[in-house]
Write a protein that binds this DNA or RNA. Sequence first.
DNA 1: GAGATCGGCAT
DNA 2: ATGCCGATCTC
Length: 544
Amino acid sequence: MVENSPDWIPEGWTVQVKLAKNGRNVKYYFNSKTGQKFFSKNDIIRYVKRGSIHCDTSQPINMLNKRRSQNKIMPLGIKTKKFPDWLPNGWILELKTQRSGSCVGKQYKCYLDPSTGYRFYSKPDVFRYLKTIKHNSCTSRQKKVGPGMPSLGKVVIERSTADGLPAGWIKEIKIRMNENGIRRDPYYTDPVSGYVFRSRKDVFRYLKTGEISRHAFKPKNKCINVPELPNDEISPPPGAKRQKLMHQKTRRRLFSATASADTGSSEMSNLSLPENQGSRQTKQLFSKPKFALEPPTETLQEKLLVENEKYAESKKSSGRRNSDLQKDKGSKRKSKNKDCNLPCRSSKRLAGLKPDLVGNSGSSEQALAVADKISGKSEVIPALGVVMGSLDNTACCQLEVVLEAEPGHHASRAIEAPSDVEQSKKDNRHLEDEAVQEEEAGKLETGKKTGDEPELPPMDFPFMDVWSDPCLEFAFKTLTGAIPIEDNLEIEGYFQQQIDSSHTQNSSLTLPDFGLPSSQFDAQEKSVPRQHFASKPSVLPKEM
DNA sequence: GAGATCGGCAT
DNA sequence: ATGCCGATCTC
């Protein structure tokens, strides 16, 4: 496609517009005699003026791309020696380290199917799963949500953990189709502050200095699409206006604490949440920090915050800015809101004890990633062909299709358990129930920590004790193949962890928080469909 | 005015 | 091909 040449363009040159794959119109200047191409006006002017060629630009586009791709960091999806041949492409082999039990420090393998999030601890398990998948291949999740071409009027959000960023950060690529083709706009969401940044650069600047780019923004709507965010994630104030006020005051520099600035009205936020969620959901494209129904104490949020800060420090070890900011934050918010992160840092868990993620196990892979980073070692070896785009092991890659006006459509609803789950449901109803119970128990825990919802009607939970019995749980999981019997190490570790976690759990299961409107669980529940997959033992060694 | 989107430019 | 970000549009 050749455009009319502008006045300034030298003789022999033409303006050409090429439609790139991503839908963009790439304009370049082409000299048919020399075959040279320039991408910018400046370059061509400079070239004509001086007769010199500006770095890359004299080369044909293809050359540029070639060279660039050569310089690229090796993608994560590289098969390594360690990667087992039998593991399908796209799967991830995680080498994890036993963090408790009699085999602390020992490594075990974990096979992760990033397309579903299912995690297995033995080869037979993987095969069993693959077998199931085959039977249901036509409805496999991968197909359902695989990156497709969004049609006009649709927006596809490709969500994944933000590569190279601290755990918890979310990268969303908004892919949309317009007359000109497809556009892909990446956005990076800070799970802690809720800010959305438009570029990695912004993110890093933010991490380093706390400075929020003027391009960064905080999503308006209250909907939570971020499955990674735990129930007790920081909450924006109920009223957007108030938040905006806060936001403006603190926008230039803050470290992820903004959102917790509920200015002491958590009750209000509790009350206002449901309708907020109900109303403006259809246009939700971005993740919203989840409303905290209870003031979190030692929550994932802190961990993320810590993670962020750690990350920032590691990026720029010289900066002591964090402490200043924390001080600032602390002095301003501490007394007002229990949501404040600071006091909690002195908690046992943050002081080095194993993070008690049992409660969040159903909610957050990010949490797991954080947990891994904090308390354990984890090595991820993604399989060929899959670029997870993440340095952590969350392997979270989701795709959402958001229809323009589809009432009640939660973006995250697009994430469903594979249909084979349906099948396995019948066979493993018990286990599924168990999973649900566990999930609920997890919520219980988070709810209890706060002790702020005494008036909410407690849910009847007759079998809670039973489910929390590690022996029974183990039995179920063993019977259903969730735990490979051949692996003594795992069994040992599992038991040990069960015991460990049951201790922490017991101590925290006193004040159920079941007053949550069901809508509030949506994101969480949808985000962890595999919780209902019977043979998915991801809650085993890792997070307990 | 904030957020969303478009599109130019640089790499 | 992709990332960044200024400009512009929309609500």
